[in-house]
């Protein structure tokens, strides 16, 4: 049971990277970016090719961030410069990436056990060599996700980050500030897709494989994680406990968790739900229906925006 908890937590953490990306586009920019379904396998494809060619495992992280940002740039340019509707811009990128991913990887690709991944690389072994592989996967994913979360939180406070948030909330304000909305959107899309590709990269390290179909449904996953996480955190932030803490000096930081924290919680909770459903013997054919039902339930019960303290 403990093992299952460790591997489910690991999955939740790794997929939180994708949810961060979806959080930026869907929640902050108000841009439903279907390109995610193509960017996720893109990160995995690049990683699988680099790993099989003997590249340094850590270099694949940078490479997938870069190609992901390029994919975001593509969606951004299609939407902003060519004036294609946001939903369609994402669909175009997603469709194009399916071919591009296969061009990159050839076909589905497996990385053999002899090849080092970030979970077995010398640096990881020197730090956490005493742990089992399963525990190492959890620790490394946790460090990565927390690192990304902290960097994102810091970024949201910079001028560029504040502008990003303004575009989704009050686009007029950005124009009043004499800033180009289009450029801000493109930056947001690049950041989001870079994170999604990073997620694909880590999944490839963890699964030692790339498959052309692995991207299917990732946007839905990310959305579900974001909405579950944010709804729960809003519930928590509105609770008497959080209200009391908000008045109590140092504790006030705990009272209003950051959106990124909510996303991590949502991702983990969602993976736990899927694992629980699998363990309960729910037939695989019913899984998507159960996902849709859970998704709808959370959306309806959370009453959408309402008096939300954290953005969803």
């Amino acid at each position: 049971m403990l093992d299952l908890l460790i591997s489910t937590l690991t999955q939740g953490l790794i997929y939180a990277l994708i949810s961060f990306g979806v959080y930026i586009t869907y929640s902050i920019l108000d841009f439903p970016d279907l390109g995610v379904d193509g960017t996720f396998p893109l990160g995995a494809a690049v990683t699988a090719v680099l790993l099989t060619r003997g590249a340094d495992p850590w270099a694949t992280l940078a490479a997938s961030l870069a190609v992901g940002a390029l994919a975001g740039l593509l969606t951004g340019v299609i939407h902003v410069a060519l004036r294609v509707r946001n939903l369609l811009a994402g669909i175009i990128t997603m469709t194009a990436l399916f071919s591009i991913n296969l061009q990159i990887a050839g076909s589905n690709l497996t990385v053999d056990r002899g090849t080092d991944t970030i979970f077995t690389a010398p640096l990881t072994m020197s730090l956490f060599g005493g742990l089992t592989l399963m525990q190492r996967k959890l620790v490394v994913s946790l460090i990565l996700v927390v690192l990304v979360k902290v960097l994102l939180d810091l970024y949201f406070r910079t001028k560029s980050g504040l502008l990003l948030r303004a575009v989704g909330d009050n686009a007029g304000l950005v124009t009043t500030l004499a800033k180009n909305r289009g450029v801000v959107k493109v930056v947001g899309l690049m950041l989001s897709n870079a994170l999604v590709a990073l997620g694909g990269c880590i999944v490839c390290h963890e699964q030692r494989s790339f498959s052309a179909t692995m991207g299917t449904g990732q946007l839905v996953y990310g959305l579900a994680a974001v909405i579950i996480g944010v709804s729960l955190m809003n519930f928590y932030a509105a609770s008497p406990l959080a209200r009391a803490m908000r008045g109590a000096g140092a504790l006030r930081y705990l009272a209003t968790p950051a959106g990124t924290t909510a996303v991590i919680a949502g991702s983990i909770l969602y993976k736990i739900c899927i694992q629980a459903a699998l363990n309960a013997g729910l037939p695989a054919n019913m899984m998507k229906l159960a996902t849709a039902a859970l998704f709808l339930l959370v959306l309806v019960l959370s009453g959408r925006k309402g008096e939300a303290i954290i953005h969803a």
Partner: peptide
């Protein structure tokens, strides 16, 4: 009120699912 319903529903769902899981596993 809505929020409480949401939380209760989610909690119930998770608990039922994990409970079933455990039962089967043992």
């Amino acid at each position: 009120m809505k929020k409480i319903r949401l939380f209760a529903a989610l909690l119930a769902l998770t608990l039922t699912l994990t409970a079933c899981g455990k039962e089967q596993e043992t």
